[in-house]
Design a binder for these strands. Sequence first.
RNA 1: GCCCGGGUGGCGAAAUCGGCAGACGCAACGGACUUAAAAUCCGUUAUCCGGCAACGGGUGUGCGGGUUCAAUUCCCGCCCCGGGCACCA
Length: 811
Amino acid sequence: MPEKTYDHNEIELKWHERWAAEPALYQAEENSSKPKYYVLEMLPYPSGALHIGHIRNYSIGDALARYMWMRGYNVLHPMGWDAFGLPAENAAIQNKRPPREWTLSNIEKMKRTHRRFAFSYDWDREVTTCEPDYYRWNQWFFLRMLEKGLAYRKQALVNWCNLCATVLANEQVVDGCCWRHESTPVEQRALDQWFLRTTAYADELLQDIGLLEGTWPDRVLTMQRNWIGKSEGAEVDFQIEGYGPVRVFTTRIDTIYGATCMILAPGHDLVSTLGDEAKAAAKRMIDAAAQQGPGDVEKEGFDTGLKAVNPFSGERVPVWVGNFVLMGYGTGAIMAVPAHDQRDFEFCRKYGIRILPVIRPADGEIPNVDAMQEASGEYGIVENSGPYSGMTSEKARAEMAAFAEQQGFGKTAVTFRIKDWGVSRQRYWGTPIPVIHCEKCGVVPVPDDQLPVVLPRQIQITGKGRSPLDEVPEFVNVDCPRCGGPARRETDTMDTFVDSSWYFYRYCDAKNSNAPFDKAKIDYWFPIDQYIGGVEHAILHLIYSRFWTKMMRDIGLITNAEPVRKLFTQGMVLANGMKMSKSKGNVVDAIGVAESHGADTARLFALFAAPPERDMDWTETGVEGIHRFLGRVYRFATRNIGMPGGDGSADTKILRKLHQVLRRITQDFDQRWHFNTSIAAMMELVNEAYLEEQNLSAAAMQQTIEILTFLLAPFAPYLAQELWEEQGKTGAVFKQPWPAFNEEMARETEVEIPVQVNGKIRSRLTVAAGLDKAGLEQAALADEKVQALIAGKTVVKVIAVPDKLLNIVVK
RNA sequence: GCCCGGGUGGCGAAAUCGGCAGACGCAACGGACUUAAAAUCCGUUAUCCGGCAACGGGUGUGCGGGUUCAAUUCCCGCCCCGGGCACCA
C-alpha cells in the first residue's frame, strides 16, 4: 500500500462517527461468564470544560479498561457528574441563569469532549447527582440514618457575613473575611444543623485501614489514620466550686499531680454562666479563631476567678479560659500541666501560673523549674504524686485511671479527632434534607412514599438570607405528615460529599426506580477493583465513602465492608512548570488539544511525560514529539501493509525486540503502571523497525505491524482501530486478545559484558548469552587490555555475574 | 513543629532484586532530500583533560560519612524543593 499522511482529524472524526452509532461498544455484560473488573475514575464537577488534568486521570483509567478488555475481563467503566455545588449558584447570581440549566449545558459540553477523546465509558449508566432520580436516594439514606440515630441535629457555628446577610461556605472565607467583602470579618453564628454520626464508625474506619494496606498508597492511609486521630487516655472530673463537676480529657493522667490550673475552651458550657465581660471576651476569641489562618497563634486567656479541685491531690487550682483549647475535641476542657506539656507551659509562663514538675527521666533528676526552657513531655518516673510516686508513667496511668473509675470521678477514655460530619448547607443547589418541622410534632421525617423532595426550579437566588430555599413559600409551607397541621419544610440542603459517597454503587444499577440499587448487582461488581483520582481527595471523599459503605452494610443493603480494593492517586498536571489555575489563565483546555493535535496524541502524552503518580509538565513541544511518533507509526504501517517484503535478514532481531517490548508493556500494566516506559518501549520498537525496514520478510513485517497495533490499542484507540482496519481486520481492536510474549523469542543470543578491574570498566566482551561464571572469567582473562592491566599484580578475587558484568580485583 | 513525596545532562525522564548511569522524548547542532523553506529521513549531544584523529584518561545521580569487589539503589547525619496536617490535651 502507498504511504499515507497521518491526518489525526480525518482518522479520529471518522471513528468518532462510527462509534457513536455503536452504543453497545463499551457496555458491560449483564450475565457474563468472564471475570469482572470494575475500573473507576473520580467523577468530575461540571465546571464547563475538561482540562488536561482530567485527561490525564481518564487516560490512565481508559488504558487500564481497554487492557482489561483485551485480557478477557467483563469490564465496568462508568462516568457521571458531581453536579451539585456552589459554582452553579454563583453563576446563577452572576448571569441570571438557573443553576440546573447552567449545569446541564456544562455537562452536555463536557460529555462531547469525553466522547471526542474516545474514553470507553458505558454512558448507559451515567449518573447526574443533581437530578431527582439520583438525589432522592440521598434523601432515602438520610431517613434510614435518622431512624438509626446516625443522623441528628445540634447547634453548630457557621460563618456569617453581615454585609451579605448570609451564611458562607468555608471556601468563601478568605483570610478570615468574606470573599465578596474583603474587609468584612466573618462572624461565627450558632445555627441548628444536621450531622451524620461518622464517629460511630471511627474505630472501624481505623481498624479497616488494615484491609487496605498494600493496595492503597501508604500516604493516603497515613493521612486517614491521622485524620481519625484515635487517642487513648482518661477523663477526670474536677469539682468547680459554685458550679459542679467539669470533665477533662487527658492522655497523661500520670501528670495530674502537676496540674496547676484548668483551662476551658471559649465555647465551653460553663462560660455562658459567667459575667457579660467574660462572655464577650470568649466570643471575641471564637471569632478570632475563625479568622486566623494556619500558623502560630499567640496564646490568650483570662482567669474566670473560679477554683477547681484536683480530685487526686485535693489542691484548689484556678479556672481559666484559653483560646488554644478546642471545643470540638475531647471535653472542651483541659487540666494544664505546664511542666510536661509545651502548650500549657507557654500559657502558664505567659500568665505567671505555677509550674510543678512531677515526672523525672528514668536516669535523671526532676526538672528544675527556674531553669526550664520548655516542657518535658517524655514518660519517666512519677514524683511528688502521693501514693503514685516512684511508679513509671505507664504504671501510674493505668492505676490512676482505675482509681478514678473506682471512685466514680473518671474513667479510661478514647477520643477521636474525627468529628461527626456536618452535612447541613444553607444553600440552594443541593439535595433537600427530607424533614419537616412541625410546632406540635417537632422534627418529622418526610415519608418514603413522598420522596423525592424536589428542589423547586423557579427560584430567585439573591445571595442573601439564611438560605435561598427560605424565600420559597411553596417549598417551605407544608402540612405536617403526622398531624396534618401547618408546618415548615427543612431548608438546609446536603453537603455535596453526600453525592459522591455512594455514586459508584448507583453505576451498577443506574436506572433502578425502586431502590438505590439491586443487592445482587452490587455483590457481582463490588468492590471497585481500581479507583483512580487526585490525591486531594485522600481524606474527605474517601473517608465519607468508606463510612457510607459501612452504614449501607449495617442497614442490610450490601455485604462488602470497603468500597475500593485498589486506589491509585495520580499526580498533578503543570503547564510549562506552573500549576494550572484560572487566575493565572494557563489552564490547558482539552478540546483545543484534541483539535490541534488529536485525542490520541493528548492521551499518549498525558501518559508519556512522567510516571502517573508523579506531577507532570504539559509542554507544547512535548505534545508535538508524541504527534510525530504517531505519524511515524502510521506512515510505516500504511506503506508496508500487504507489501512483498525484503530478504528477512533482520527478522530475528525485530521479533526479539517485539517480544521484549511486549513483555515490558505487559509487565507495566500488571505491576508498575509506568506507562511512560511502555510508550518509550514502543518508540524503541518503531525506531528499530525504521532502521530494518528493508530487511524484514513480509511475514515479520506483518507481525510487527499487528502487534504494534495491539500495543497501541489501550493508549491511542483511534490510531489502533484505523491500523486494524488498514490490515483488513474487522471488529473492535480493543476486544481482541492481548498478545502473549514469548520468553524464548525475547531472549538475546549475545550480550556485551563490561569488564571491570578494581571496579572500573576497562574493557568490553561480547559473549554468548547465558555464559557461566567460569566461561566469563576465562574470556576476560584472555582479553589483551585486561592482561595488560593485571600484569605483575595478584588477582585477589573475580566476581562474575552472568549476562551482567565481570569484576577483577587485583593488588 | 510533625508526617509523606522528590532532588540524576540544557529540559521531561530511564535504570523493575546492589551489577554498563543518562533508555525514550524535547531542545540544540550537523548531514541527506529541496531552487528554497516546511515536512520527512539519517546522525551528534553529561562533563573536564590530552590528541589532527581513531582513541585514551579523569570526574559525575543534592551534600558529608559508612557498608560492599561494586551504591542513583542499602545504612547514618545534614541541605534544598513540593505536598499534607497544624495548638487534637
